[in-house]
């Protein structure tokens, strides 16, 4: 195909897409209006399953399969990073220098670390009740661990962060999500269907059937994935040096 023909194909496709987009936009409900066909159905379904946070119900119940896809993307991305940022033959490890951080900063980091970890767990656990969920809580908890690097030095972080275990945790959490989905099959319905557990009392921690379980799996997966990802970046930035002629 010549360059000219390719351009025409591109233009035709682009024009078709533009027409469809404009047609769709013209029939969108108005901004801030009171007609939400999808929203009303989603809220109805989430209330029927006693999940107070409709977004969690959409993410982990009505569209749980999509979340499985997103989780796989994160898993694959972190795997790619681990492969790309490994230590190659012409690189060597230098011991990170101990850092002398000002005392108030160090104290702040050590005090806030447990608070931030607890907040991460709180956000994961309350995913089906209030804004938040596995992803948000997992990121907060993983960031909290890195206060050790910021407030002390890299050696301190490495002591509480055996990367291998976090890699195992990442894989285990991903499989836990899939296993919970398959358990739905055994229950006689469909993959990831929320029919396995009783729905519980509305607006309590144990409500929502499998939503809290899937939330916890995602929380653990994201926290481990972020820790592994940052470990690779920190290794490259702090420890690994290229062999030079000196």
């Amino acid at each position: 195909m010549t360059r000219r023909a390719r351009l025409w194909v591109l233009l035709t496709g682009g024009a078709g897409l533009a027409v469809l987009l404009v047609a769709a936009c013209l029939r969108l409900p108005h901004f801030g209006g009171d007609r939400h066909p999808y929203g009303d159905r989603a809220v109805h379904a989430s209330l029927a399953r006693r999940t107070a946070n409709t977004i969690s119900s959409v993410n982990f119940d009505q569209r749980a399969f999509d979340t499985l896809g997103e989780m796989t993307i994160l898993f694959a991305a972190v795997l790619g990073c681990v492969v790309l940022l490994r230590q190659t033959q012409d690189e060597r490890r230098a011991r990170p220098e101990p850092a002398d951080v000002a005392r108030p900063v160090r104290r702040y980091a050590l005090l806030v670390l447990p608070v931030a970890l607890l907040t991460g767990l709180y956000i994961v656990a309350h995913g089906q009740l209030s804004p938040g969920g596995g992803f948000q809580g997992g990121v907060v908890a993983a960031t909290a661990l890195h206060l050790l690097y910021l407030g002390a030095d890299y050696a301190a972080l490495e002591r509480v962060r055996p990367v291998g275990r976090y890699e195992v945790g990442d894989a285990l959490a991903s499989s836990a999500y899939v296993v919970t989905g398959i358990a739905g099959l055994i229950g006689g319905t469909a993959f990831l269907a929320n029919t396995l557990l009783p729905y519980g009392t509305f607006n309590t921690l144990s409500s929502g059937g499998t939503v809290p379980l899937l939330n916890a799996a995602i929380g653990m997966e994201v926290a481990c994935a972020v820790v592994v990802l940052l470990a690779r970046f920190l290794d490259q930035a702090v420890e690994i040096e290229e062999e030079s002629g000196r």
Binding site: P96, E97, A99, A102, P104, V105, Y108, V112, D153, E239
Partner: peptide, 21 residues
């Protein structure tokens, strides 16, 4: 408030003893 005051402290020389890592 504590976070921002500490962060301000860190910006004005809290990591002076940090080199390389």
């Amino acid at each position: 408030i504590s976070g921002n005051v500490i962060a301000s402290r860190a910006l004005s020389g809290g990591f002076r003893g940090v080199r390389g890592g």
